[in-house]
Amino acid sequence: MKQWELTLVDPECSMEKAIATLDQVAVRIVMVVDQERRLLGTLTDGDIRRALLKQRPLSTPVSEVMCSTPRTAERGWAKERILAVMERYQLLQLPVLDDGGVVIGLETLHDLLNKPRRDNPVFLMAGGFGTRLRPLTHNCPKPLLKVGEKPILELILERFINSGFHRFFISTHYMPEMIREHFGDGSRWGVSIRYIHEDSPLGTGGALGLLPHDEIDLPMFMMNGDLLTTLDFGNLLEFHQTHSGAATMCVREYEYCVPYGVIQSEGHRIQSMVEKPVQRFFINAGIYLLSPELVKSVSAGTRVDMPTLLESEISAGRDVNMFPVHEYWLDIGRMEDFQRAQQEFGGL
């Protein structure tokens, strides 16, 4: 059972029991839910104190003294948005609900401001030419193109840092000196950054062979340097550790609408007709968690793409898991994607 689940109580729970729960869990809130875990209200130590000042007996059901209209967060909210709501309404806790109003978590100000330190290495791929974004990339590598006031790669780096990661490798090929000059050794952010340079392109997975394999001792994040996402990297790491495997690939649901009526037939007879059907697929989101063994299996100088590398693991009988990304995600590969990023950045 996760810590936040200990705060769940039913509406008939007495104030006395709620106080015991508050003392036990030490997050200064209990969440009142129905049998399906839909949130009915919250009860904080402040609510308890106000009820006691009104001389309500300890046997009073929490449903009579709870806040029945609490502020809540939705699944997929970025840390920054949660903190903004907490600051605006002076909150110490914020229940997290799914689309049906079911409690799926609890964010606390203490946990958000005291991020854990995670030693997993992070490998950011920044060597591409960005040909589809020319002329913007004639004199600037794509990862250094700015969205808002910061380069794309810096936004990625800071999201990892905000999740507690501090060991970074950046692969370079096109205009490497500009990337090195901007990020340096990472001391500006209080982290370590080292560079892996590809003299010639080795594919999306070949740079793994140039890493110092003796230092890759934990599952390693690998991410394309042209993505914007609000994905919680801590959740991804927890999933990977729970579901043992050689790798975890983040995937994104992609919908394609066939612009015509589709005919199902048998011989010369029509069986059915579907007008403009929508087909759904999972696509590679360009974010991975790789076991140290998989990283070390790539030899220096090997040219290989990540799909090919993962397919070889599957063929060898090793598990490759997928982690659906429902949070904001944008691959900045084309000019229209770059323009969309500029428009949407303020809402991230």
Rank of each mutant, 00 (worst) to 15 (best):
F282Q: 05
V103Y: 07
S171W: 00
L22Y: 06
E238R: 14
Y195T: 00
V85W: 05
P116D: 07
D331H: 15
F338D: 02
I196P: 02
T72H: 03
C67E: 15
E336H: 12
K115G: 14
R194Q: 11
L83S: 10
I156K: 11
A126I: 02
T42F: 07
M178N: 07
V258D: 06
I29V: 11
A246E: 02
D214K: 12
V325E: 06
T7S: 14
L52H: 07
L83K: 10
P176A: 09
G245I: 04
M306H: 03
D10K: 15
P141E: 01
M249D: 00
L289P: 07
G261V: 09
K142W: 02
K276H: 10
W189Q: 07
F338P: 13
A247I: 03
W77R: 14
V62Q: 14
A51D: 13
I332C: 02
L348G: 03
Q264Y: 12
E336Y: 11
S291L: 01
V258M: 06
C257E: 09
T204F: 04
D337T: 05
R50W: 09
V304R: 07
K2C: 09
K79D: 13
Q339V: 14
E293G: 10
G105C: 13
T230V: 07
V103C: 11
L124A: 01
I156L: 13
V325M: 14
G205Q: 00
L157D: 00
R49A: 13
G267D: 01
Q90A: 11
V258N: 01
L202Y: 00
E293F: 06
I270Q: 12
M15L: 14
S312M: 13
W4M: 14
M222D: 05
M335K: 11
Y328H: 04
I332L: 06
F281G: 00
Q93E: 08
Q343M: 08
E87I: 08
V251T: 04
P151N: 01
G206L: 04
Q55D: 14
M175W: 01
G184R: 00
V251G: 03
G234C: 02
I19R: 08
M175N: 05
E16Q: 15
I170G: 06
R132M: 14
R334H: 12
R159F: 06
C13M: 15
I287Y: 04
M175F: 12
R37H: 03
S297A: 12
S171N: 03
N114T: 10
L218T: 01
S14I: 10
R252I: 05
D34K: 10
S315M: 13
W77Q: 15
G101F: 02
A247T: 01
